[in-house]
Amino acid sequence: MATFDYSFLLKLLQIMLKYVKITIALSLISLLFGLLLAFVITLIINAKVPVLSSMAKVYVSFFRGTPLVAQLFFLYFGLIQVIPALKGLNGFTAVIIGLSLNSAAYCSETLRGAISSVDKGQMEAALSFGMTYFQAMKRIVLPQAARVAIPALTSNFADIVKGSALAFTLGVTEIMAAAQSEAASNYKFLEAYTCVILVYWALISTIGFIQKKLEVILNRAY
């Protein structure tokens, strides 16, 4: 019976830590673009903009209702065949686009829920005082909704980090790709995937710690 090779685990851990920055970069960039798009989607749906609101709802339904891996493959191996502008698209960029589009759908629902938690009377009062819809959102509703949204958005970010593990399917060398390469060359799959789990667990635990700190700060601010 094969024994668990702790020395290989420690060696692989050192190798994988070099690729953590790639995972974090993928996740942070995707979160940034995802939040920007989610914010636009949320405003469109809440403002009930004709046609655009219906399109936004279809967008959210599509990306929440299909697997992330299928979306990445559809983008990288499918659309790249029919859209000339995507011919030179590399795996790293494709993953960012895919994760951003996917996270935007989830983050938009988080933002909509947070905005809905703010008393509608405040929006009505702001409009009655002559503010535009967007002024009222910026000055009154969004600052209050942020406090509610932070915990859920942090969870969304954790999902992005975990989703970034699929980057290896598009040829991006990150944590999972490094583990697979080492496991295949040394035939130590148990140690390799144990290492993967430990690294991702540490990353998600760190995100959870940051979330709790943010909640404390926001509770003091309000």
Score class of each variant (00 low, 15 high):
78 G>W: 01
143 P>M: 15
151 P>T: 11
142 L>G: 07
142 L>Q: 13
150 I>E: 03
79 L>Y: 01
176 M>N: 00
104 A>R: 09
131 M>C: 12
20 V>I: 14
145 A>Y: 07
36 L>D: 02
30 S>Q: 03
181 S>A: 10
201 W>A: 04
1 M>Q: 05
39 F>I: 07
116 S>T: 10
67 P>I: 02
49 V>N: 11
37 L>I: 15
220 R>P: 03
188 K>H: 09
113 G>L: 12
132 T>H: 05
99 L>Y: 10
52 L>G: 10
25 A>R: 10
52 L>Y: 13
149 A>G: 06
110 T>M: 13
26 L>T: 06
179 A>G: 02
159 D>T: 04
125 A>V: 07
164 S>M: 01
16 M>A: 11
49 V>Q: 10
58 V>Q: 11
26 L>P: 06
66 T>N: 05
187 Y>L: 11
202 A>I: 01
113 G>D: 09
196 V>A: 01
127 L>R: 09
52 L>H: 12
209 F>Y: 05
150 I>H: 07
60 V>L: 13
52 L>T: 14
74 F>H: 00
47 A>Y: 15
172 V>K: 09
145 A>M: 09
171 G>V: 04
104 A>Q: 08
193 Y>H: 06
17 L>Y: 10
135 Q>H: 11
107 C>R: 12
202 A>Q: 00
169 T>H: 01
77 F>Q: 02
112 R>I: 12
192 A>R: 06
55 M>S: 13
97 I>H: 04
54 S>C: 09
154 T>W: 01
190 L>I: 15
19 Y>D: 07
13 L>F: 14
134 F>N: 07
119 D>E: 11
137 M>G: 09
67 P>E: 06
187 Y>K: 08
148 V>G: 09
129 F>M: 13
36 L>G: 00
122 Q>S: 05
159 D>R: 04
65 G>P: 07
78 G>P: 04
98 G>D: 04
211 Q>Y: 00
141 V>I: 15
201 W>D: 01
88 G>A: 09
116 S>D: 13
22 I>W: 14
40 V>I: 15
173 T>W: 15
4 F>H: 02
114 A>L: 14
184 A>D: 11
127 L>P: 03
54 S>G: 14
28 L>C: 01
69 V>K: 00
169 T>Q: 06
212 K>F: 00
83 I>K: 02
167 A>Q: 07
53 S>Q: 13
207 I>P: 03
53 S>P: 11
122 Q>G: 03
